[in-house]
Structure formats: C-alpha cells, structure tokens
Amino acid sequence: MIEIKGLHKSFDGVAILKGIDLVIPKGKITVIIGPSGSGKTVLLRHIIGLLKPDKGRVVVDGVDLAALGSRELNDFRRRFGMLFQNAALFDSLSVLDNVAFPLIESHRGRALPDVERIVEQKLALVGLPGIGRKMPSELSGGMRKRVGLARAIVLEPKIILYDEPTTGLDPIMTVAIDNLILSMQQKLSITSVVISHDIDSALRVADQIAMIHDGRIIERGSPEEFRRSENPAAREFLEASGRKANAGEVR
C-alpha cells in the first residue's frame, strides 16, 4: 500500500503540489488523471523517491521514503518498476541489453540467472518476442513503450508506475497498452499506479481513479463513482471526453 500524506512541492517558488492526500491500495490499479501541468508526473516522481517533498510524506508498505538514506532508497527502489512517458530506453544498448539491464545490475557480485531466457519471456509477455537484437531507434513509439514495460517488469516488482503510457499512441495501440496493464495486474498481482489524462483509458483499466487539479486531489473513487461525480472539474473532464467521442460520430 502507498500512502501519500499532505504532500507539498514547489519549483522556483511556484507551488505544484499543494497538499496531496491519497491512499493507493495494494494489488489494484489506481489511475491518477488530471489536465496537463496539474502535477501528475511530479506526484509519480515522489512515489519512487526521485523527488523529495518540501512538506508531507510518502509511505510505501510502511516505509517513509524521506527517512531512507541514498543507499537504502536505492535498494528500496528494486520494489518498483517504472514505465516512462517516452519509455526512456538506453539508446546505446540493444533491446535485449535494455531489458536485461535491471537484472544484471541487481545481480552484481552474484551468479546471474539465464538472462536471455528471462528477457525473451518478458518480451513475449508484452507481445514482442524475438526483437532482442534490435536497437531502440529501430522501434515504433508503441513498441518502445512495450519494451519499456518489459524492462519495468523484468525484476517482477511489487509496484509498477506508468507515466502517461498511452500518450501519443493510436487508438489500437492505446487499447493494446491498456490490455497489457490489465494483464500485468492479473498475472503478477502487482500494485499499479497509472498517470494519464486519457479518461477513456482510465475508465477501462482502473480499480480506483483519483483526479488531481491545481495541485490537489479533488475527486477519488471507483470508475462508476467517478462517472457520477458532481465535481465541476471532474464533470468538465468527462464531458470533454464525451464531446471528443461525439465529434467523430457527427463528422
């Protein structure tokens, strides 16, 4: 379980997070939605300890991240896998080396398992078997995201963080990534935190949806509860999504 308590963060005097309180349940998919620039990614970076809060706490499985030293935090991060917005694959390494990277690093000084077999297994899990020899520059956006996901799950983490996993993808690939998020959760029973501004995608995959607006959580609940929300900002978000879908039909 991840507990976020009274989280505040400012950059150059500009407040981005203004007191976030959120509980992310274990083994479920929580989608944090909100408009661009609302602080979603900043929140995600606090969850994995890439940023330190100005005020407030992030507690993961009972451990306060702010209380950990840099080495302990490094070790603690092995519980997480993270899929970055643009996959953040290492340009100079092949797909095989990219996916194997966390595995090799976590086994330094110890006997390595059968790296190639594990990597191939994970690539098959994301629907990309046999592409280990390719370089990241040879892959499409959707393939890069799936390789990023294979890298995120290679150590079989307890928590996976997805930063805008469907942004910039076509509708077919968006559904494919949504299905992947669902199947990861079902097969590996991991806690998933998805950052997105794609409300349709959020309604499809989430067990819990939290909406962040102007640095605060303004709405939280199951997809059904979220659909019935009376909060003006949440309604606007839902209606804008509906208008987008209708616009296609009218045209």
């Binding site: 991060r77 092995r78 997480f80 896998g81 970055f84 643009n86 953040a88 966390p102």
Partner: peptide
C-alpha cells in the same frame, strides 16, 4: 544532456543504479 532530457538518467535511478 540527451540522457537527462529523455529521462534515461531518471530511469537509471529507478533501477537502483546511481
């Protein structure tokens, strides 16, 4: 610089590599 702006350095940190 390229690794920083494409989040590759952040990715290293998330993989417990300094």
């Amino acid at each position: 610089g390229t690794m920083r702006v494409t989040e590759q350095i952040d990715a290293l940190e998330t993989m417990a590599v300094n």
